[in-house]
Design a protein around this nucleic acid. Structure first.
Lengths: 222, 222
DNA sequence: GTCTATATTCGGATAGAC
DNA sequence: GTCTATCCGAATATAGAC
């Protein structure tokens, strides 16, 4: 029973109206072009001049959208993690928890090798002054939680095993991205690596099959 | 029966005399200072002005030692790998090949986490225009060969297993360097990870104990 | 929000005397 | 080999009119 709630509102404070939508759309367009430029020239050497030109603005006008270059990197960072979360959402976990874990790692590797500079921004610390903002950190948690869930589903409840797993993911993505960007040289061994990881788990805890206990892992690092 | 072969030689073509030694010493000093600066400001933003000042030169004089900034990065790259090789030379392999492999990975992780920017230059592709020169590539081979040797000693003869191993090393170093630079959060699980790797090897090839066969691995990537 | 114009700083690299 | 002096370009960021 809301009538005409989007056309003729007279609110003054912070109206989420057409103007704001347009602003956000332009932000998104800028970020998209920034990725394009980063892929072309390298992440560290994006020029705000080039960028502005490509979104039909003069260079100073970018400051209406981003307070600084680092703020732009932050927006790209958030955008990148959103893409990752979207990819994960498109691939719900398989019923078998081992299979789900394998597919999770494969997705990570594929995602990273799709776009080297995105991988660089999201998973390396390579831009000199850049530190993800609190809001950006928030988004990364969404991804980490997916990983933890998959781990718990195969029975991992300790930080040690979790750390080994993150090293595994980091290693395969890194090698694939930097030594065979458009191939599958490392991707094709993900299954074997995960099976080796799971076998190690089972060798440790006596083979009690309690894969469904849920203890909480501390979100430090990784 | 060689008499006075180092004091009074009259060779003229490329005399490795005092002048050349001094030149190389200065090169080394510059590189050392460059590392210092890189650790302070970040690898990508070394300024040749700052650098020159710190080695008591004016900025243009650096060009008597390095043709360009990229040439400086190349020298740092070579220097970094020399440091790694030296470290390896100080730690000859244990008699037990599994133990030798564990220690090799632990050395790699320790070496990398000792110096983040060194790790960045040697193992990431992060400087926009930089590609290691042929001479630099030569030096990296020395390190790779040590790794292959350790792998062959535990019976690895296939590229697949070797690739999994390099992913393991890359992953542990990466996590240690970026998520716990001065701690041992990942370092302390290297042994378990390597044992899990070796167990996987033994599960694959029937447990014939022929750890000493030497087939050659192709030097692609990693 | 967008523009023009400009401030400011800094970068790498070169010329040419000594 | 080292210097002074300078070039040339590029960068991010700001001021202020519209």
């Amino acid at each position: 029973m809301s009538d005409r709630d989007s056309s003729d509102e007279v609110v003054a404070d912070p109206p989420p109206d057409r103007r704001r939508l347009r602003h956000e759309a332009k932000c998104a367009a800028i970020v998209a072009e920034a990725w394009e430029l980063a892929r072309r020239d390298g992440l560290a050497v994006i020029s705000l001049r080039d960028l502005a030109e490509r979104v039909d603005l003069r260079q100073p006008s970018l400051y209406a959208y981003f307070d600084s270059k680092l703020a732009l990197y932050d927006a790209m960072f958030i955008d990148g993690y959103r893409q990752l979360l979207e990819l994960m959402a498109q691939h719900p976990p398989a019923d078998d928890p081992r299979e789900a874990l394998v597919e999770f790692v494969e997705l990570c590797v594929r995602f990273s090798s799709e776009d080297t500079v995105r991988h660089q921004l999201l998973f390396q610390r390579t831009i000199p002054g850049f530190r993800p903002s609190p809001e950006a950190r928030e988004v990364t948690l969404g991804f980490l939680e997916i990983g933890w869930q998959r781990l718990m589903d195969v029975g991992v409840t300790d930080v040690a095993s979790s750390d080994i797993f993150t090293a595994l993911v980091a290693g395969f993505t890194h090698q694939q991205v930097f030594h065979d960007p458009r191939g599958d040289r490392w991707l094709r061994h993900v299954r074997r690596a995960v099976e080796m990881f799971v076998a190690d788990l089972e060798g440790r805890s006596p083979p009690r099959r309690r894969a469904d206990q849920l203890r909480h892992l501390r979100p430090r690092g990784a």
